[in-house]
Design a protein around this nucleic acid. Structure first.
Length: 493
RNA sequence: GGGCCGUUAGCUCAGUGGUAGAGCACCUGACUUUUAAUCAGGGUGUCGUGGGUUCGACCCCCACACGGCUCACCA
């Protein structure tokens, strides 16, 4: 039985045989090009501007993405990483070599030498004086006009998606530029970029369920990090006053348009700063990145325009929940009481087995977060929700913490870091108690080694975590995190 | 995990309880300035998988797989 795909492949294999029978290597080891395609085009435009009639020959290489055969002359479009250019082949110029073009297919890579000129339709074109096959493709590319629309295929075979979609290529170009811009911003402020362990004995520093793995030689379980936090704080303790890390963290949780099991986090820690200073820095950082990447402080997102010009409004969590849900959490300090309020305000699916902090988190995500479209800082969270943050001096029930919301999505989380080792131990123990009481695997974990570090003395510090993927979603107007991650997690088939 | 929707040619998509369709791609031929080239001809399919109903299933039913959206979960 011959499937259509096999039929196409047989034809390509036959071409491969013909090519080899001419003693041509279809996969040569090297090829010397003189210009990237965009460079060749720039060169020609420059010379044209200067009035130089005859452009020097160039040698370019790329993948054939279109072919228009005219009999004794033909056109092809090739693309490399920098752009695309048209090629012109004619029989009177190439002689016998011309007929071998018949063994080329869309998808093959070729190298071409020739001089540049404009066709009568004004397109800059390489007039081939010689060409060489650089790599033969054996499978057809997706439809040149429609590209790939099957989302599953787009993610599983991202290379095809990238090949056929300029938009997708641009998303990942923007992602790269945004990350460079983040680094530039922080480097410029004297932050030191560091790398900390991915494999950890205790996965602490956030409320999330970790992935477990096993180290054979040590014969012990290790966890993939769920946050960068506790190791970066160890560095603050070690006297690195300003540090940051951009790295992958892993959370063994559900997949959604806003969650991928592995995602990229930026965390910064600055000694002698507090959350107010960090807030200011975040505004500047995000608006600077937007300016760098978009050339503007405004971003179109989900059909609205988001204005990132600082300063951004600040609201306490209490104000926000009162305003958007009508619930004043300070009046309901017990879990049963708060749960009742939530039910009274029409919330469904309020789990019996949730702690007060988790319940309040529900209120915030249901009523408050969706309303925070323009960039907004929510400040001053209850201590129950924030085991690593320092209490407010004037209200010990609250901590100096903020979260940044843009487009209804949480982008960043920050606090004035708790640096009292005795209290930190108590907070960890409280978390452990809650885990026991509620059986919640996401409750933060006690990290003795981290406490040991803190007991040696930790300066007052402002810390920050930014969801880089989500920031890229904002900058590229994408509603799904999978669109900004090259290879998002999918079930293996 | 629940609900809804989807899965047909390499790609994009139509389709009917009774022989499986189009465009692009591909193959053959024509063509020396094309731009989704054009013109003439060609058809290369496990209709997601497995059951069931039926004289007959791509279509109807059930289960499963994968994906999307959504709720739950999750900062």
């Amino acid at each position: 039985m011959t499937t259509r795909k096999e039929y196409i492949q047989e034809q390509r294999l036959a071409k491969l045989d013909r090519i080899r029978s001419r003693k041509v290597d279809p996969y040569p080891s090297r090829y010397q090009r003189t210009h990237q395609i965009s460079e060749a085009i720039a060169l020609f435009e420059q010379q044209e501007k200067a009035g130089i009639a005859e452009a020097p020959p160039v040698t370019v290489a790329g993948r054939i993405i279109a072919s228009r055969d005219m009999g004794k002359a033909s056109f092809m479009d090739i693309r490399d990483g920098s752009g695309k250019i048209q090629l012109f082949f004619s029989k009177d110029k190439l002689g016998e070599e011309y007929q071998f073009l018949a063994d080329l297919d869309l998808g093959d890579f070729i190298g071409v030498t020739g001089k540049l000129w404009r066709t009568r339709t004004k397109e800059i074109t390489v007039q081939a004086s010689g060409w060489v096959l650089l790599s033969k493709s054996l499978l057809p590319l997706p439809d040149k006009w429609h590209g790939l629309t099957d989302v599953e295929k787009r993610y599983r075979q991202r290379y095809l998606d990238l090949l056929t979609s300029e938009e997708v290529r641009n998303i990942f170009r923007t992602r790269s530029r945004a990350i460079s811009s983040l680094r530039r911003f922080l480097d410029g402020r004297g932050f030191l970029e560091v790398e900390t362990p991915v494999l950890q004995a205790v996965a602490a520093g956030a409320m999330a369920k970790p992935f477990v793995t096993h180290h054979e030689a040590l014969d012990r379980d290790l966890y993939l990090r769920i946050a960068l936090e506790l190791y970066l704080k160890r560095l603050i303790i070690g006297g690195m006053d300003k540090v940051y890390e951009i790295g992958r963290v892993f959370r063994n949780e559900g997949i959604s348009t806003k969650h991928n099991p592995e995602f990229t986090m930026l965390e910064t820690y600055e000694a002698y700063a507090d959350y107010n200073a960090v807030m200011k820095m975040v505004e500047e950082m995000v608006s600077t990145v937007a300016q760098d990447v978009l050339g503007a402080m405004k971003a179109g997102f989900a059909g609205t325009t988001i204005d990132l010009t600082p300063p951004w409004p600040r609201m306490t969590l209490r104000e926000a929940t009162l305003k958007y849900s009508g619930i004043d959490f300070e009046e309901h300090p017990e879990a049963t009481d708060l749960r009742q309020q939530m039910l009274a305000h029409g919330m469904a699916g309020v789990d019996e087995k949730m702690s007060w902090g988790r319940l309040l988190d529900q209120v915030v995500s249901t009523f408050v977060e969706p309303k925070l479209i323009q960039p907004t800082f929510l400040m001053d969270y209850p201590v129950e929700m924030s085991p690593l943050a320092k209490r407010k001096p004037d209200n010990p029930k609250l901590v100096e913490r903020f979260e940044l919301f843009v487009g209804g999505i949480e982008m960043a989380n920050s606090f004035t870091e708790l640096n009292d080792p005795m209290e930190q131990r108590q907070r960890f123990l409280q978390q452990e108690k809650e885990r026991a009481a509620y059986g919640d695997e996401e409750t933060d974990r006690l990290d003795n080694d981290f406490l040991l570090a803190m007991e040696h003395g930790m300066p007052p510090t402002g810390g920050l975590g930014v969801g880089v993927d989500r920031l890229v979603m904002l900058l590229t107007d994408q509603q799904s995190i999978r669109e900004v991650i090259l290879f998002p997690q999918l079930r293996t088939v």
